[in-house]
């Protein structure tokens, strides 16, 4: 419903007059498009929305959004966004970050935002490479990766951002892919409705420094067999005919099922009170199993800013004190 106060905006209304300066063919364009589409669909208002980023290719994002935007410093976007959200919980605060910005230099702020459950929506573009500094391995690059800073192959092991977020107590954790636009747009809509911290890890292709990183499961001809769409309340099935599934043994090790055993496929519950199934999916081998996308976890939990504001409100209710009473407190005495 459009009113004078809350006009319904189109996707184009979220675009700015600035030239978009990502490399031609970069996955970031598709993500920008999906986010602008979701924002229009959700009836968001420009002045109520704040997009905060760190440093990296993805962090240019705020310049292309006709909302409030703050392009900050490397890794610190969740901390700055926390200050914004706690100061004014009415604002719709989005953080745009990358695998280097969020997982490496800003790892501490990322996990503590999750732990506190601040009402931030974090879009983490994961291209498994450092793009802006022109091609070094990142904390999500596969072991052995040959880059400019690892000519003999990286000896670092990567971590799974989803598993990390599960461990940090994240309450909305999802994964999307740049080229699966409508799916991503839907995830953005779901994240937007979440009251606590929401993470969407977005697999994003860097066509300059890590081209084809996700080709093995996102190419059209393999996609059906290699992507597992997580759907709440539905069994974990994949394949063009949904004739393959994933089940867990007693030790929560995943295994493939098909044929007569298809009924054993695990029924996905993103609200489960244990993170164990989500952790099993987040850490299963990409080579042996399909890659899960969709919502890994969604739990309701009071958010940080409302708990902070509630304490302030309760304290004000309990004790009214003038500035004079505050200063003239304790033992005071008069002279003259």
């Amino acid at each position: 419903m459009t009113t004078v106060d809350r006009p319904v905006l189109q996707k184009k209304d979220f675009k700015t007059d600035q030239d978009v300066r990502w490399c031609p063919g970069c996955g970031d364009y598709a993500i920008l498009n999906a986010v602008q589409g979701a924002f229009a669909k959700l009836g968001k208002q420009l002045h109520e929305t704040v997009v905060i980023s760190g440093i990296g290719c993805s962090s240019r994002f705020p310049y292309y959004m006709e909302t409030f935007g703050f392009h900050t410093i490397h890794g610190r976007a969740p901390a700055i966004a926390t200050g914004v959200k706690v100061s004014n919980p009415e604002l719709d605060v989005w953080v745009v970050t990358g695998d280097g910005d969020a997982m490496s230099i800003g790892g501490n702020h990322f996990i503590h935002a999750m732990r506190r459950n601040v009402g931030l929506k974090i879009l983490m573009f994961n291209n498994r490479i450092y793009g802006l500094t022109k091609g070094q391995f990142s904390p999500t690059s596969e072991a052995g990766k040959i880059t400019k800073s690892s000519p003999l192959g990286s000896v670092d092991y990567p971590f799974s951002p989803i598993a990390l977020t599960l461990g940090a107590g994240g309450t909305f954790i999802a994964r999307g892919v740049d080229i699966l636009g409508p799916h991503l747009e839907d995830l953005v809509c779901q994240a937007s409705g979440h009251k606590g911290t929401a993470l969407i890890e977005i697999y994003q292709n860097c066509n300059i420094f890590n081209d084809g990183a996700y080709k093995g499961f996102t190419d059209k001809d393999v996609r059906d067999d290699r992507i597992l769409y997580l759907q709440h309340g539905q069994p974990l099935l994949f394949g063009a005919n949904k004739d393959k599934g994933i089940a867990f043994d007693a030790g929560f090790r995943p295994f493939l099922v098909s044929g007569a055993d298809l009924g054993k496929a695990f029924v996905w519950d993103e609200t489960s009170d244990t993170p164990a199934p989500a952790m099993a999916l987040a850490t299963m081998s990409e080579a042996e199993f399909p890659v899960p996308i969709g919502v890994f976890r969604r739990r309701d939990k009071p958010n940080f800013e409302s708990r902070v504001q509630a304490q302030v409100a309760a304290a004000k209710e309990k004790k009214q004190e003038s500035l004079k009473d505050l200063l003239y407190a304790g033992e005071i005495w008069d002279v003259g």
């Binding site: 700055i80 200050g83 902070v308």
Partner: peptide, 26 residues
Amino acid sequence: KHHGVITFQAEDEIAAVASAIGASYA
């Protein structure tokens, strides 16, 4: 708090100043 003061014990010194910058921005 009864004077409306919000205090945020941050995870580190950087988050402490960063959150304060965010608060001023807001």
